[in-house]
Nucleic acid binder design. Sequence first.
DNA 1: TTGTGTTTTATTGCCTCC
DNA 2: GGAGGCAATAAAACACAA
Length: 292
Amino acid sequence: MAGGRVYPSNNDATDGVPNNLSVLLQNQRLHPLFIPGSSPSPSSFLGTRSMVSFEDSLKTNRPKRSIFKMFDEQENGYDEYLEECFHQPEKKRRLTVDQIQFLEKSFEVDNKLEPERKIQLAKDLGLQPRQVAIWFQNRRARWKTKQLEKDYDTLLAMYNSLKADYDDLLKEKDKLKEEVLQLTDKLQTKENERRNSEFSDVKPLLLQEPSQKPIVVSMAACKQEDIDSDNIPQYYSDEFHSSLLEAADSSYPFEPDQSDLSQDEEDSLHPPASLSNFGFPVEDHPFWSWTY
DNA sequence: TTGTGTTTTATTGCCTCC
DNA sequence: GGAGGCAATAAAACACAA
């Protein structure tokens, strides 16, 4: 080993555990699946010897006797079993289904392994404490990987949902934008027609007498209330007025999105106050302060 | 049978905590 | 400084198609 921690070899029964494991086990008589701080019912452990039979798995790679039979046969059975195992040429062995089930159950209870529990599990399963520790370590790694996959799936679902909402909002925004443009065009056309008709009323007067001052005549053609007072630009139809008022009263659901517009577009939508549409200062009317 | 991909067991090196 | 956890990885065991 190049450095770092020095572990006992696979043939060594210790893992920070006293060398005479059997003495420790015999003295402590730890409960199977012992977990400090928990109080499992004894009945749940009665099955450890009966429900976990390792005879099948021991047929090939292990001594042919079950570890538990060995315990029955002699006081120091575990000690000797370890001795017997550790002097075999080491091959990597898979744990049996029963061993894994047992470990899984223990992992469900607590995925961390206290030294006492490790020793007890090792004893119950006929494994080295280090093997139990390694199994828990690898099991924690697998659990973490699965957890990450779950988290990823959850986040992906949330992202997809949010994106769908966002796309819907974009579509709605475009629809409303189009609607506003159409209405604006409509109003512009209407206003042009109105101007043209007014001009055609005045024109004959202008052409009557070249000697007369046309401006005076044309001014005379206007109603007095169009000239003074607040009503000067009577270019708006009543319909236009009410639409503007409605627009002013309604709350526009979107934040102004300046990034969507080039400077030219912004200028066209926000002309200087002196050049405001129909003679109104733009900032006086909320309609023109919209961004679309 | 064999090649290949996957899973499981075990090692290594680094890090943190006491 | 030792114990133990973790990430990365090696290597054995296993599954399975060709």
